[in-house]
Amino acid sequence: MPPTSPPAAPALFDAAMARFAAEPPALPLAVAFSGGADSTALLLACAERWPGQVEAWHVHHGLQMAADGFERHCAQLCARLAVPLRVRRVDARHAPGQSPEDAARRHRYACFDALAQAGQALAAIKTVVIAQHADDQAETVLLALSRGAGLPGLAAMPASWRRGGVTYRRPLLGVPGPAVRAWLRARGESWVEDPSNGDARYTRNRIRAQLLPALEAAFPQFRATFARSAAHAAQAQQVLDEVAAGDLLACGHPPAIAALQSLSRPRQANALRHWLRRDHGQQASAAQLEALLGQLAACTTRGHHIRLKVGQGFVERQDGAIDWSPES
């Protein structure tokens, strides 16, 4: 019987929540709650399992008329469950050259940071749970492939991580999306549908509507195999990060040009990516990194000038080293 057939589907969700509870989250916890099917199911399950220890965090992105309705739906469900609801409103419009999805994600996590800090004066939230599931993970891998991403992109979404003193967890990454909805239907629960999820202008939506059904037909186990590939990529990236940290320690702070030149070109690229991400929170494009490597290779005289746009600023030569500074 296929794993998402109606009799088995609710059990898949229940099994995932049982595994989550077997390694219990630090309480109290917050559920990132959009009002959609996935976060609705997660909120219901957490509120039942840990009554009085759960609150909901809703981000009103201000991007569409339906957003006010989303908030009302969330407030009604939270009132029924006696779960506190905290709402943050943001203008999540994207900047020129930035993807709408990336802009919304950045605003969302900034809201989570603010909510976590605000809660420290009350009952400090120890864990935030997010309802992304196996289909979301597969979409993320395919999206990364479509963009020619490296290992960080192919590693997709981690099951847990720390941010600002709070643990974030994704307990549903092994659950197919249809199984989440089957669990809700079995309980007679409703949810809101984001109209933008059907907008074919977004690559992720085209992947969901066109590629996932084809993969389901050709490779029924694709969710599990994609998840394994993502885990392998994450493990390999961890090794590369450790190599980069050692190389940067030898190169100094900021990195000395001569020390970088002593590394092979792939190790230079790995060290520079790690340096930009770790020390400056920047992600260099493939073209930017290739240009920087070319400038480093050509830097053989004291008078060689380096000033390259990388991320949201510039990498510049400072005597015998390079450093990054934000765009003024």
Rank of each mutant, 00 (worst) to 15 (best):
A224Y: 01
I207R: 04
A233I: 03
A214M: 07
G246H: 12
P213Y: 08
V239I: 05
S264F: 10
V239E: 10
Q268P: 04
L211M: 14
S264N: 12
L272W: 01
A236N: 05
A233P: 00
E242R: 11
A258F: 05
R204Y: 01
F219V: 03
L212W: 01
I207Q: 00
Q210K: 08
P213S: 13
P266C: 10
R273F: 04
A224L: 13
A218C: 05
E242A: 14
L248A: 06
A233L: 00
L263P: 03
A258M: 12
A227G: 08
E242D: 06
L260I: 04
Q268R: 14
F219I: 02
L215S: 10
Q261P: 04
R204K: 15
A258H: 12
E242T: 03
R223M: 06
Q210H: 14
G252S: 01
G246D: 10
Q235A: 15
Q238V: 03
P220A: 15
A258G: 09
A227D: 10
H253E: 11
A217G: 00
A217L: 08
Q268H: 13
G246F: 08
T225C: 14
S264K: 12
R223E: 01
R273S: 04
R206P: 00
I257V: 06
A269N: 04
C251G: 00
A269Y: 02
P220I: 10
R273A: 10
F226R: 00
Q235S: 15
A256P: 01
L211A: 12
A200C: 10
G198D: 12
L272M: 13
L212D: 08
D241I: 05
R228N: 12
R267H: 02
R228V: 12
A218L: 09
A259G: 01
L240I: 01
A217F: 01
L211W: 02
I257R: 06
N270T: 06
A224S: 06
D247R: 05
F222Q: 02
E242V: 00
A200E: 14
